[in-house]
Design a protein around this nucleic acid. Structure first.
Lengths: 202, 202
DNA sequence: TCGGCCACATGACGTCTGTCATGAAGGACT
DNA sequence: AGTCCTTCATGACAGACGTCATGTGGCCGA
């Protein structure tokens, strides 16, 4: 009896390629595919899959969000997250959401198949490099408000706009940004935003 | 006699998956793989491949840069560019570099194989959506100096730093940035940078 | 109950940034 | 030779931004 797999990735080409690759393994079988987070959720439940292989970045809910809901909707289903851009913060969020496999897309095909088997057997596998990065990066030093405000300051947004969107006074926004900038050792809020984003903290 | 293909993508998992997928076609044969732009160049020449399938974003020279050099080093070799993030400007640059196939990774596997065949036969195929975006976006309104300076202003860099790196006076840098900001209708240089990046102009 | 941390706010400060006017030097076209 | 355009530069000005001091109120652990 082979392992029943759901494969979710928004890139059609990659998804079918990966599906064929997994199907080559005699003990693995891709029974469902999805291109968005919502589709992934629906398909996983509908086909009652054993393991869900999810891309981290997808339209709609991302891989981790899907994993979270899957833990509630389909307990017993193992989740493997695959990603191109491994940010330290993501790994932590993923692990907290019950994800048991976490791999960068730079790993070999054989590894992916092995990890699927391991996760299906109840085991766990996290890419060592990613884990090292996550440990080195540590936890976010930002308070939740600081993170909120920083997140809103993407791409040249004005303080006024941020204040309006966060329902805060402009002065308060500047204070939060200032402390975030200091904590992250950045030169300005754009730099701070980039850093926090790289770390997966926002 | 099957078409001899070079496949270049920095993501190992994707590369092997794609290789298997192309190898399934009886008339196509992946004879070389590469993970970086430099590797791609070397392997293409070494194996004298018929068609190079290149990921746009790779460490070292990107897909388009490789295509440019390939046009000189291995004339007669067709190039197909595959990309996750299709920015309008890239398509134009690619076409100017002699690329005859341009696809987003969201296309189907069958399309990729077809395009490889078409390009090998001397034909041309550009994804219609990407082409529409490129036409809508138009040409870059930036002068080359403006683009240079804007490119250096990524992620919260100081004007001083930009000036130092571009060997210009800080005042001049501000002038160029100011005119770039105006031309792009941006609120500040970070916004302008993001816009230009999205359009593929820098 | 007290001290400490966080969320939120105001005002003042100095610096950074974007804008504009202006000008010098060099190439290109007429 | 004269007129453009581009590149590079300077100086002035207003507004945006980052920092700091300071204050209020709420919540939590000691």
């Amino acid at each position: 009896m082979s392992v029943r797999i759901l494969l979710a990735d928004d890139e059609h080409l990659i998804r079918t390629a990966l599906a064929q690759l997994l199907d080559l393994e005699p003990d693995l079988e891709v029974v469902a595919e999805a291109a968005t987070g919502d589709e992934a959720l629906a398909m996983a439940v509908k086909h009652a899959v054993d393991v869900a292989v999810l891309d981290l970045q997808m339209p709609g809910p991302d891989g981790i969000a899907v994993a979270e809901r899957l833990a509630a909707d389909l307990p017993g289903c193992g989740v493997v997250i695959v990603t191109s851009h491994g940010r330290p913060g993501h790994l932590k969020r993923a692990l907290q959401s019950g994800v048991r496999g976490f791999l960068p897309k730079t790993t070999s095909a054989a590894t992916l198949a092995d990890v699927v088997r391991k996760v299906h057997a109840g085991g766990r596998h996290v890419d060592p490099d990613l884990a090292a990065d996550a440990i080195a990066a540590g936890d976010s030093p930002l308070t939740s408000r600081e993170a909120d405000v920083l997140e809103l300051s993407a791409d040249g947004t004005t303080i006024e706009e941020i204040a309006a969107r966060a329902a805060l006074s402009p002065g308060t926004v500047r204070n939060y940004l200032s402390s975030a900038i200091t904590k992250l050792g950045a030169a300005n809020r754009h730099d701070a935003w980039a850093t926090a984003r790289r770390m997966g903290w926002i």
